[in-house]
Design a protein around this nucleic acid. Structure first.
Length: 488
RNA sequence: GGCGGGUUCGUCUAGGGGUCUAGGACACGGCCCUCUCAAGGCCGGUACACGGGUUCAAAUCCCGUACCCGCUACCA
């Protein structure tokens, strides 16, 4: 694959080298659809430019981060097939680094100690809001001399470290998706870098790590746009070149509000449970906020996705998660996957459902899957509605029985049909069809009535492929047996 | 409230002054096919948030309004 030059104006310091990107989830929740899409974009970008994807766990919020969530995120990444090249790194392992950066900022007077208590701040914020003033930090400790601060600090007084935000001017950055974004510095408060427990806040740790890990492109959710100037200020204070920022629009629920538990699946792993093929999910997610060049079909396997993906085609507006379209991608992938490729995925479904496949001949098994593929919407179907093709241990759908087998005479004719099948020596599609149609004519019933009834008897479902193809898939013995033993 | 961003069919989007009586995909409706259900084939409806400008000409540029989203923490 030829490497195209980065069209985004990579700074000279970075140009020529491979991009290093990172996915940096916070283990305070599952890997949800939005996070997954961000991870995917990073992955696609890294793979497109043959760069490096780093996985970094931002677990500096001790209150809310849990090991279970870390595990869930890793599982989600693995299921999605988003392999990373470095990490996972945990920010809690790196607090010394952050303290070092904070010390640097303190020393250069870009930061200062603040002794205001959380409670005081709370009160002042409430007051400010009540008086119609913006609830920003009021700078009480901003002018405490470094000597006094050091004295109070060593005297055991609790303090946080705040960044000294310039009081005038503005801070801007060129976003690869949104273009130039500018904020008045007066709008930015002196934010906290180091908490009173000496732990870093997000702004400190991201910047420190992105520098340390030599990140070239920060591809993350648009919810971080408003925070970016703070980070830009840190880069500037440190005199370190900035990465390129690329903020990707959010994914919303069908009601156009932020995607949440209310909208169903929280964790991407829920889609594994629903029988979604990872590659289909990737394809679907990629097209949520990113558009392939005009004329490109929407079914884009990994290879094409990787070769086509770039930051400049990312949309600026939020996208609504459309489950129906996901399902469409899934059916397309099921249909396009060769049975050999589908088989292991289907076997997982059987394992989950406790199904023991009874088709031991591999060729027959693959042929059966081939027959069923066009009708499956989900991998799960192979363990539910299509179960009867693989095991005798299946149940018959009462609704199907009520619709096609309510007539006792049909049942009787099917038993007769079974007898004819049993004694015939040419078990073939046309052969079986002829026997059935002849019998229908003899009994003066519509062939369709027998066909539909037989379908329910053979598959337990009112919906299945062409009946005679079904018979071939089941084989003579099972076909005869099931026709004879129609359940009520 | 302040700040930032967004707004083209129900959804994802194309389009970036004339080629737009606005294109594609999913979804939806109808017909055909038919042994069920899909699939497939054919046909169809539906969109430039609103109001002002600028211009010979605006979905496309500017301003305002509305609505939506985000941020506004010792969360990330």
């Amino acid at each position: 694959m030829p490497l195209s030059p980065d069209s985004l104006g990579v700074p000279a310091s970075i140009a020529g080298s491979r991009p290093r990107v990172r996915f940096a989830p916070s283990p305070t929740g599952y890997l949800h659809v939005g996070g997954a899409r961000t991870a995917l974009f990073n992955w696609l970008y890294a793979r497109h430019y043959r760069g490096t994807l780093i996985l970094r766990i931002e677990d500096t919020d001790a209150e809310r981060s849990t090991p279970e969530m870390v595990e869930g995120i890793l599982q989600g990444m693995r299921w999605l097939g988003l392999n990373w090249d470095e990490g996972p790194f945990f920010q809690t392992d790196r607090v010394e680094t952050y303290r070092g950066v904070a010390a640097t900022l303190l020393a250069s007077e870009h930061a200062y100690y603040c002794f205001c208590s959380k409670e005081d701040l709370e009160i002042r914020r409430a007051q400010a809001t009540a008086e119609g003033r913006p609830p920003r930090y009021d700078g009480t400790c901003r002018n405490i001399s470094s000597e006094e601060a050091a004295r109070r600090k060593s005297g055991g007084e609790a303090a946080v470290v705040r960044f000294k935000v310039p009081q005038s001017g503005s801070t801007a950055f060129d976003d690869a998706v949104f273009g130039r974004v500018e904020f008045a510095n007066a709008e930015v408060e002196d934010f906290v870098l180091l908490r009173s427990d000496n732990g870093p806040t997000y702004h400190l740790s991201v910047v420190a790590d992105d520098i340390k890990m030599r990140i070239t492109h920060v591809i993350r959710g648009a919810d971080h746009i408003s925070n970016t100037p703070k980070q830009v200020m840190i880069y500037e204070a440190l005199g370190v070149p900035m990465p390129i920022f690329a903020h990707v629009p959010l994914i919303l629920g069908p009601d156009k509000t932020r995607l949440s538990k209310r909208h169903g699946a929280t964790s991407v792993l829920a889609y594994r449970e629903e029988g979604i093929i990872p590659e289909a999910f990737r394809n679907f997610l990629a097209l949520l906020g990113w558009t392939a060049p005009e004329g490109t079909p929407e079914i884009l396997g990994d290879e094409r996705l990787i070769s086509l993906f770039d930051l400049n085609a990312i949309s600026r507006s939020d996208a609504v998660f459309d489950r129906a379209k996901l399902d469409w991608f899934n059916t397309e992938y099921i249909r396009s996957y060769p049975s050999e490729k589908l088989l292991p995925l289907i076997e997982e479904e059987w394992a989950k459902a406790g199904i023991k496949n009874q088709i031991h001949d591999r060729q027959s098994l693959l042929a059966t899957i081939e027959l069923l593929k066009p009708r499956a919407r989900s991998l799960k179907d192979f363990a539910t509605s299509l179960r009867a093709f693989f095991t005798d241990d299946f149940e018959t759908d009462p609704a199907a029985t009520a619709k096609f087998l309510k007539d006792e005479s049909v049942r009787q004719i099917l038993i007769e049909l079974a007898q004819r099948y049993e004694t015939c020596d040419d078990f073939s599609e046309p052969g079986m069809e002829k026997l059935l149609r002849d019998l229908a004519a003899e009994k003066n019933v519509k062939a369709g009535a027998l066909i539909n009834g037989a379908r329910v008897a053979l598959t337990g479902q009112g919906v299945a492929p062409s009946l005679f193809a079904v018979m071939m898939a089941l084989g003579k013995d099972r076909t005869v047996k099931r026709l004879k033993e129609i359940p009520f």
